[in-house]
Design a protein around this nucleic acid. Structure first.
Length: 608
RNA sequence: UGCCUGAUGGUGUAAUGGUAGCACAGGCGACUUUGACUCGCCUAGUCCUGGUUCGAAUCCAGGUCGGGCAGCCA
């Protein structure tokens, strides 16, 4: 984006969660609103996470609060630092210029501090001062929150539960545990180890921690109710034994807390007020509350709220399946521009503001829906249209010889940089004897209502003049070689016949001044509206999701850099590829990605 | 057949007992040196059956249909 672009002055969004937050604010139930975005670092963030980020950061922003970025890293078997790095980069990019002042990071290495709250011992981990939030990853700087930084504290809470008789060490095997749990319509049975003494539980739990037992030999369980209609209240597991190194804590632990135990406590330790998650955690909420309520915690407790995650048409929004696409090399990586990952979308040229606009458009509800991709595409065009400078580029060139223009002569034309913004100015584009036009813009046998170039017909070269097609030259095989046309220079802007009307105006570039480039044209990755519902989603991958063309660009595009977005007139929005673009001035062909085509009422489909 | 939860045009949503509105998509038209943008007009909806009420998308009851939950995943 070359032009600074402000967030649209839209009315503050409203939804059922924001309404609840507003009530809590009105009743002063918390000193400050604190939310969190808690991804597990086992994959890259995608557009569904973008919805959640916009919700959590949006609420923080609208209430003068803060939103902590927290790695929910309690399962070392699946997690990697590559993922934590990508998550940090993606969140910062998405939030930049919008809610970075709300982004909660902690001082590097910080863990919850012992404090006294209302005369009671307590633990709390404050975010870093705002001034330092901008420099994550430096040695003395800040970093995201990590659930794994709370393992010590969580362990202490586990012992507290044991001492209260609310948790016990269970020796059932995983298989037996499943059998004892019962089923949704059949109550479970008590574990034979349920009545162990506090002393024995404490001893066993400490020995679990000390590494005396092999994986899965024992577990720590909450003692709640094996007959509960809610499966998650049937003595859920709190801790499991896993002799595995952790990406953040190394070999410090061989027992790891499960999500249900770690999450609510992480929220509490960070002073989270509103813990917002997706619908599948609804049945876990009673457990979330049970754990916190059974620990006599002195500060106000966080509460969990659930919303429907995003489902997008023609798209897969599932880390597991996205990982499959990467592993099976259906795409080139997590940041392939066809991927709905935040890094893929960014590389594709989608601005962060478009993701935010999209999030605001779809709102937040508990209704499980499939959002039409058209809503997303609209948000992208809404952001790009006012911001993207216009350029001329020909994707599938056809040569035109302007027979009345001498070779070597250059007619300099003025092209406007943005039709809606005179301040963007103009740039010179050279008209020469040989130019390229789009293959689509000539039809030897035009269909009805076709108003571009045809044999004997006239068309305007945008910003230049009207030309007439005198002759169609073909080779022996009948393939089009070139079009021989005459240019009517009196129809140039400012010329005596400038106002002459022709039905069509087409884009073009000078054959002698243009730049060769590789342009990648992307289409949807799947051929069906709901690939997630397909028997095998890999079988509905669109075989034509990318097409690479050798294009001719106006020479001013030589200095374009990744991150900048241009509208190639009549075609769509394009951006230099951040990974494959050659170094500037290297002389190699630049590589552009098509972010999105222009709407096309004529072709009724993706342009070009 | 257990528990939790939801249902408003094709899609996403608003209306919080008082005129069912907005956006997208679709259609028609105006404008146009982008078949874009912009502008105007149009199409199209409260899951069903009862009940409460002067008045129900909203409250109540019963149904129907959808989603979620039985990992030592999150």
């Amino acid at each position: 984006m070359t032009a600074a672009h402000q967030e649209p002055a839209a009315p503050a969004p409203s939804d059922f969660i924001r309404d609840l937050v507003a009530q809590d604010v009105a009743h002063r139930r918390y000193p400050r609103i604190v939310t969190r975005f808690p991804p597990e670092p086992n994959g890259y963030l995608h557009i569904g996470h973008a919805k959640s980020i916009c919700l959590n950061f949006g609420i923080a922003r609208e209430n003068g609060g803060q939103c902590n970025l927290r790695m929910d890293d309690t399962n070392p078997a699946k997690e990697e630092v590559e993922y934590v790095d990508s998550i940090i980069a993606d969140v910062q990019w998405l939030v930049a210029g919008w809610a970075d002042h709300c982004l909660g990071f902690k001082p590097k290495g910080a863990t919850p501090a012992a404090v006294t709250t209302n005369g009671q011992p307590d633990f709390y981990l404050a975010p870093a001062p705002k001034s330092k939030v901008q420099i994550p990853n430096s040695k003395i700087g800040t970093e995201p929150f990590f659930a794994s930084d709370y393992f010590g504290q969580i362990y202490t809470y586990a012992e507290a539960l044991i001492e209260k008789g609310r948790a016990y060490v269970c020796d059932l095997t995983p298989k037996e545990t499943e059998e004892y749990r019962g089923s949704p319509d059949r109550p479970g049975r008590d574990s034979p180890f349920r009545q162990r003494s506090v002393a024995e539980n404490l001893d066993l739990f400490r020995r679990m921690r000390a590494g005396e037992f092999p994986d899965a030999a024992r577990s720590l369980r909450a003692k709640i109710d094996m007959a509960s209609p809610n499966i998650w209240l049937r003595d859920p597991l709190l801790y499991r034994i896993r002799h595995v190194a952790h990406h953040h804590t190394g070999d410090a632990w061989c027992i790891y807390p499960l999500y249900d135990f770690a999450h609510c406590l992480s929220d509490y330790l960070e002073g989270i007020t509103h813990s917002i998650c997706t619908l599948e955690f609804e049945v876990h909420r009673p457990l979330y509350d049970w754990i916190l309520e059974n620990l006599n915690l002195p500060r106000a407790l966080p509460h969990q709220y659930e919303f429907a995650k995003l489902n997008l048409g023609y798209t897969i929004v599932s880390k597991r399946r996205l990982l499959q696409l990467v592993q099976e090399k259906v795409v080139t990586g997590w940041d392939d521009p066809r991927m709905p990952t935040i890094s893929g979308l960014r590389r594709r040229g989608i601005p962060a503001s478009a993701l935010r606009r999209f999030a605001a458009t779809i709102g937040v509800t508990k209704y499980d829906s499939v959002t039409d991709v058209a809503l997303f595409e609209h948000a992208v065009r809404e952001e790009l249209n006012p911001a993207a400078p216009r350029r001329l580029a020909v994707l599938r060139p056809v040569k035109i010889v302007l027979t009345n223009l001498p070779a070597g002569e250059t007619v300099t034309c003025d092209a406007v940089n943005h039709p809606a913004d005179p301040a963007a100015g103009t740039r010179p584009v050279p008209l020469t004897r040989e130019v390229f036009i789009e293959a689509d813009d000539f039809a030897e046998v035009p269909p009805p209502k076709y108003f571009r170039l045809r044999p004997g017909g006239e068309v305007r070269l945008k910003y230049a003049c009207i030309i007439k097609c005198d002759e169609v030259v073909k080779d022996a095989a009948g393939r089009l070689v070139e079009l021989r046309c005459t240019a009517d220079l009196t129809t140039r802007s400012g010329g005596p016949n400038a106002d002459k009307k022709v039905k069509g105006t087409i884009h073009w570039v000078s054959a002698t001044h243009c730049l060769d480039a590789e342009v990648r044209l992307y289409d949807r990755l799947f051929t069906v509206p709901e690939p997630a519902a397909a028997e095998d989603f890999l079988k509905v991958v669109n075989p034509k999701s990318v097409e690479v063309v050798a294009a001719k660009l106006e020479s001013t595009l030589a200095t374009a850099r990744a991150g900048e977005c241009f509208q190639f007139e009549r075609l769509g929005y394009f951006t230099p590829d951040a990974k494959d673009s050659p170094a500037p001035a290297s002389g190699s062909r630049p590589v552009f990605n098509r972010t999105i085509s222009l709407k096309d009422a004529w072709g009724k489909g993706p342009a070009a």
